[in-house]
Computed example of a mutant assay.
Amino acid sequence: MTALGFLYPGHSAEDDYPRIEQLLGSDIRVDVVHTDIGEDAHRVDALREMGSPERLAAGVEELRLSGAEAIVWACTSGSFVHGWDGAQEQVRGLARAAGMPASSTSFGFVHAVRELGVRRIAVGATYPDDVAELFADFLRAAGAEVAGVRGAGIVTAAEVGTWGEEELFALARAADEPSAEALLLPDTALHTAAHLPALEKELGKPVLTANQVTVWEALRLADRRVNAPTLGALFTREPIVQV
């Protein structure tokens, strides 16, 4: 049994995690601990506070006692708003506090893009435009080429959590760029786990979503690889061999 730990801010789309656990169909246990979200706002100052060391540390002990082998801060905006260096320091602090390998959803996207072997990507974000651009800057810092960024202007995670299939697919279609090799949909408040194969069929390319890459990142940290086609191309790819 491989136990994976996640720190999830508030309550929006956390039901993606037990769904993903089922879809993995293996000896994987997914443990989610909720952190205090503070002010629910896709605004830079509020997002930085949401991902502060104090708020993250509050949930670490519960995950450690659960037997987790790796821990991921299950929040995209609450990590990339700190910039590349700040986001790295955030996960280093989390690893020190937890005593185990740690990462965040933002770095999950970076590693997933590399896993797929793609470089040119498009971004469809639920966030306001200024926050969406910060995510694009984070991806550029990782070496990705961003073909386009589409923000939906949603201010709160609570509203994102109410989105269904119709809103999700509308955002994906609007954000996709013909030249992009993959589409990225950040925001762990967005329900996507049930729609990954349909999204990839609709767009004809890999689609990476926040809760999907968060679980994949935890598996990577735990040195586990699971083939799960219902979770999209990311979970069916053979690893890229670096030469």
Rank of each mutant, 00 (worst) to 15 (best):
T188F: 05
L47W: 01
E166Q: 12
I28T: 14
P9E: 08
G67A: 11
C75L: 08
F6E: 03
W73P: 08
S179E: 15
I37K: 02
L184M: 07
A46E: 12
A210Q: 06
A189T: 10
S26E: 14
A102W: 06
A3Q: 14
W216K: 06
A97C: 11
L65P: 01
E89H: 10
P229R: 13
M50I: 09
D27V: 08
E69C: 03
F169W: 10
N227G: 08
L63R: 11
R150T: 14
R120M: 09
P101E: 08
H11V: 15
E165M: 04
H111I: 00
P186Q: 01
E62M: 10
M100S: 06
T2Q: 05
V110L: 12
L63G: 10
E145G: 07
A189I: 11
S106R: 02
R96A: 15
P197K: 03
E14M: 08
E159D: 15
L63K: 12
D129A: 14
D85Q: 15
I240Y: 11
I240L: 14
R19H: 12
T188V: 13
A147P: 07
F169I: 07
S79I: 01
G151F: 00
G99C: 08
D45I: 04
R96D: 15
A228C: 10
A228N: 06
V207H: 05
D187Y: 02
A70C: 08
I71Q: 07
E49S: 11
L199W: 10
P18I: 07
A147T: 08
V44D: 07
G10W: 03
A13M: 06
A152D: 00
E21G: 12
A233F: 01
H82K: 13
A233G: 05
E167A: 15
R92E: 15
Q90F: 04
G232C: 07
C75D: 07
G153P: 05
R140Q: 12
V243P: 13
T35Q: 02
D130C: 05
N227Q: 13
